[in-house]
Design a protein around this nucleic acid. Structure first.
Lengths: 201, 201
DNA sequence: ACCTGAACACCGTTCAAGT
DNA sequence: ACCTGAACACCGTTCAAGT
């Protein structure tokens, strides 16, 4: 028996990954602690050695999602260094694409399943870090005269809110067909950003 | 025995109302078919005589929520007839207030628990009607030169998206404290609308 | 037509016990 | 420290049966 003690050295991460996989394959309704445990091959009680409760596992999965989101946003901005407006547009598009390609995890990140500010410090940290990264992009746009001058954090909430609202409504099927038949999501998003811009470029 | 046949003549609406009450008192996690049945005083199986499944009850509750939302939006607009900009601002504020005062039902209306376009014609109807009401307000703003000229439906999605995104992020606790300490939700929303306006009024 | 009782397969969570 | 087995209270859903 050469193998590891008990099951494997890193049950915690195995559980998180199994959760992400289930979210991908079965959507948000399919996620349960028992199913996660079964997929990893441990007893129903085993996850409780690593996560206080269901919420706590969801917090870990959401944290994972935010890390991925941060990475793609940062990459999009880095790819257009020196061109603030393009940074904003492409980061926005990266956000939309993340939401469309990872619908279940995106929803769980924001769908309030994570109610209380019940600590989850890793989640708070990466979520703040992501916000700050967007503030940087917005500030660069203001300095370049692309976005109106206003408190950068306020402008960021405004831009992010717009983006988040449009994609959320789209994912819920709430956007009228009279709109979706005539405009793509990308066009809708571009229109929104264009409205916040000082001048058309 | 003077009473009604079986339980009461309108178990269907009693179930919907009980669901709304539970949402208010216990939030979204507390809602279950069994609890709804218990509160009304019927067996666990009784709801199935009126609703195909859990989703179907949720659809009915969401429909109820949309009716209420429509009423308050319409009232806000009616109260400022002849002043398109004020109509827009007050309707927007009514939306925000509805979300903040009826958090659980607002979340269930939009939180994608209602996945498929699995019919629910009453839901689709009131949801469309609400959208069209907002389009009217937006169109009036464009005619009055308050909002930029653009396809009204596109502009409506943009305005609605902004609003919906900001309040959703706020309800999830995703809006940074560096923003919330300095601005009220109303100020954030006003800022968003101001940005879409042609000129400051 | 409208409802009950009992059953089935699934949950989250706890706790004593094993290594 | 890390995991199992068994238990408890709760789900959604179905179905035969009652009025």
């Amino acid at each position: 028996m050469p193998a590891k003690k008990y099951h494997h050295g890193d049950l915690e991460n195995a559980l998180i990954q199994a959760g992400v996989d289930i979210l991908f394959q079965e959507g948000i309704e399919g996620l349960s602690l028992r199913k996660v445990a079964k997929r990893v091959g441990v007893s129903y009680a085993a996850p409780y050695a690593h996560f206080k409760d269901r919420q706590s596992l969801i917090a870990a999965i959401s944290t994972e999602g935010f890390k991925q989101l941060y990475t793609t946003l940062d990459a999009a901005a880095a790819a257009h260094a020196g061109d603030p407006k393009q940074q904003l547009v492409e980061a926005a598009w990266a956000y939309i694409q993340f939401a469309m390609q990872n619908t279940a995890i995106f929803k769980i990140m924001f769908s309030g399943v994570l109610e209380k500010e019940k600590d989850y410090p890793a989640f708070v940290e990466i979520s703040h870090k992501t916000f700050e990264r967007v503030v940087e992009i917005v500030r660069a746009c203001q300095d370049a005269g692309v976005l109106r001058s206003a408190p950068p954090e306020l402008m960021t909430v405004s831009v992010w809110g717009q983006l988040h609202g449009v994609i959320s409504l789209a994912l819920e099927g709430q956007i009228s067909h009279t709109v979706l038949d005539r405009f793509t999501i990308r066009e809708i998003v571009s229109f929104g950003i264009e409205q916040m811009s000082l001048s058309k470029t």
